[in-house]
Computed example of a mutant assay.
Amino acid sequence: MKAIIYCRVSTNKETQESSLNRQEEELIQLAKQYQFEVEAIIKEKASGYDFEREGILEVLDRIKDKQVQALLIQDETRLGRGNAKIALLHCIMKEGTKLYCISHNGELQLSESDSMVLKIVSMVEEYQRKLHNVKIKRGMKRAVQQGYKPEENLKNLGSASGREKIEVPIEEIIRLRKNGLTFAEIAATFRGFGHNISKATVHRRYQEYLASQEE
């Protein structure tokens, strides 16, 4: 199994430097104990409350790209503190990555409170995904009921993705807007028909149209 080692201390003090080296040494031994193939060792000095850390972001990238199947840490606080820790645990565990730590001399055992919070986060994320899909379907349904015909009004339907695919006719945005759809619903409708367009883009195009009418 391929693994990545992550070590972190919060300051640049000399005593912290020795802690960083000790973490690395102990985690290398843990990797040998479980016969892991260590792909990388990432060490950094940063606050555990800070989510924007180059080291941990590289860890997440490697996990997302399926380069490793296990992450080795001294304990869960090395990932982060407070909400940052919970967010990182969620990101790592939902990818199916195993967490091993020195403090447990093996696979990480979450506390009852952390397990409960992570379950809640997973449930919320799943319902957000379902709600997003429902909003897309609702927007598409409303648009079609108002006379929207994607096969006639949208170009490049089914073609390869690219710059042209987001060139949605402004007249369609105007018409759907007049029919009572919100910018989010209009964007969701276009995305449902394969056009990669955001709510912000729809709003910007509409504002550009209004500005042109005032000239």
Rank of each mutant, 00 (worst) to 15 (best):
Y127W: 09
M93Y: 01
E125M: 01
Q29A: 15
E52C: 00
L71K: 07
R78L: 12
E24Y: 12
D75I: 04
Q69V: 14
L30E: 06
R62D: 02
E112P: 00
G139H: 02
G106Q: 09
Q29P: 00
Y127A: 01
G82E: 06
E24G: 07
Q16N: 13
K32N: 14
L118I: 08
G80H: 00
R138L: 13
K32I: 02
I28S: 04
D61N: 14
K85F: 04
L71E: 05
V68Y: 01
I63M: 03
E25W: 10
K45L: 07
I73M: 08
S103V: 08
L79Y: 05
Q69H: 14
E37G: 05
L71Q: 08
K119L: 08
K45I: 08
L131G: 09
I28M: 10
V134N: 09
R53W: 07
F51D: 12
C101H: 10
I136N: 00
L89P: 04
D65I: 02
T97H: 02
K66D: 12
K85N: 12
E126L: 02
K119C: 04
Q109F: 11
K85T: 06
Y34W: 10
I92S: 04
F36M: 08
R138G: 01
Q74D: 12
A40I: 06
I136R: 06
L79H: 05
E37T: 10
Y49G: 14
Y127D: 02
D61K: 14
L118T: 06
D50N: 12
K32W: 09
R62I: 04
G96P: 00
K135H: 13
I28Y: 06
Q74M: 11
S111E: 13
S47P: 03
L131F: 06
K64G: 01
K32Q: 14
A84H: 10
E52R: 08
E25I: 13
R138E: 10
V134C: 05
E39G: 03
E39N: 05
Y127I: 01
E44T: 09
K66S: 13
K32A: 12
Q128L: 09
S47E: 04
E58N: 12
L60F: 04
G96I: 03
D50S: 10
R53G: 01
V59W: 07
Q29N: 15
L108Q: 05
L118R: 05
E24K: 15
V117Y: 10
R53L: 04
L27G: 02
R81Y: 11
M140A: 03
I102G: 04
A87Q: 15
K98C: 00
G106S: 09
L72E: 01
Q29T: 12
Q35M: 09
L131Y: 05
N83M: 11
G106A: 09
I73C: 07
N83D: 08
I73Q: 07
